[in-house]
């Protein structure tokens, strides 16, 4: 071993040890609990996790909600990121700050705000009744819609920032060239800007999807009893039912579902993305 390699190994030792102990071992524990019981190997937990009607339904509902959150974050966020990338100077810095700031506020606090806004006697109902739009307060909170609205608000900044990052790498001369050659702005956007920004769209949708899969706080606080997500069910297995093997199996199924969908998204959306090789990256 050379001197340099030894130093590198020394530097890596402590962080790798921590990651192994606090991340890899816990994952091994999850797998162990899901596949083994006191007697040895068992497929019972996994089988229950993928066949029990309730679990399958909750898992499906989690995947659907995560897909909705990811899609809406990207759709709502794309024009925002686009506009942000067109700005410059202090205004741009202020807007980036305003979008980054909520990311640092605890998810719990941000979800709590939605209880205040959407509650039966919350801000929105108060305004609607006061303005005479509705006769009596609407049922806004404890609905699937409330979970969507709050989840999107929690993750939208991330989607915007990732897409903004990708967009600010785009060489604007390419668009100018298209315009000079006679393309109307919409065509220049559709044929140049959109494909070049697709990488940002893909990374943000995959990341948002995976993060949504683990949502725990938001469905529990603003969702109804029928809006529970797989995370809430896993917590229930650990804290109330005390069926840890089943909880672990549900975790494995969730992880597998997440990887599968993320992989598929890459495959499908990746075909639409232009890359640096196409000459789009500012050098």
């Amino acid at each position: 071993m050379t001197n340099r390699a030894r130093t590198t190994a020394l530097l890596l030792a402590a962080p790798v040890a921590l990651t192994t102990f606090a991340f890899i071992l816990p994952m091994v524990e999850v797998i162990r609990w899901s596949l083994f019981d006191g007697q040895g190997f068992t497929s019972e937990h996994i089988t229950t996790a993928v066949t029990d009607e309730l679990f399958v339904q909750v898992l499906w509902q989690t995947i659907v909600l995560s897909a909705q959150v990811a899609a809406l974050c990207v759709i709502i966020g794309y024009p925002v990121a686009y506009y942000l990338s067109m700005m410059s100077g202090p205004l741009q810095r202020l807007c980036v700050l305003l979008i980054t700031f909520p990311l640092w506020v605890s998810v719990l606090v941000r979800t709590y705000a939605w209880i205040v806004v959407l509650g039966r006697e919350g801000l929105l109902n108060l305004m609607l009744v006061e303005l005479g739009v509705v006769g009596e307060p609407l049922k806004l909170i404890f609905t699937r819609g409330a979970v969507l609205v709050a989840s999107i608000q929690v993750l939208l900044p991330l989607a915007v920032l990732i897409m903004y990052g990708a967009m600010s790498q785009i060489n604007r001369n390419l668009i100018r060239a298209a315009r000079v050659l006679g393309a109307p702005p919409s065509a220049a956007f559709r044929m140049i800007f959109l494909p070049l920004s697709m990488n940002g769209v893909i990374s943000s949708s995959v990341l948002i999807f995976i993060l949504s899969l683990g949502f725990y706080v938001t469905p529990a606080l603003v969702g109804g009893p029928r809006d529970i997500m797989i995370s809430n069910v896993i917590a229930q297995q650990i804290n109330q039912t005390l069926d840890w093997g089943l909880g672990a199996a549900l975790g494995i199924v969730l992880l597998a579902a997440g990887l599968l969908v993320a992989g598929l998204t890459y495959l499908v959306l990746g075909r639409f993305a232009a890359t640096a090789n196409d000459g789009g990256i500012r050098s």
Binding site: F23, Y216, S231, I238, A248, G251, G258
Partner: peptide, 23 residues
């Protein structure tokens, strides 16, 4: 590789941490 823990859903990290620390 160091970023992988970041993209695992929190509840799975929590579950693993619970099981390991319990053991």
């Amino acid at each position: 590789a160091f970023l992988v823990p970041q993209i695992v859903p929190a509840v799975i990290t929590a579950l693993g941490a619970f099981l390991l620390l319990h053991a």
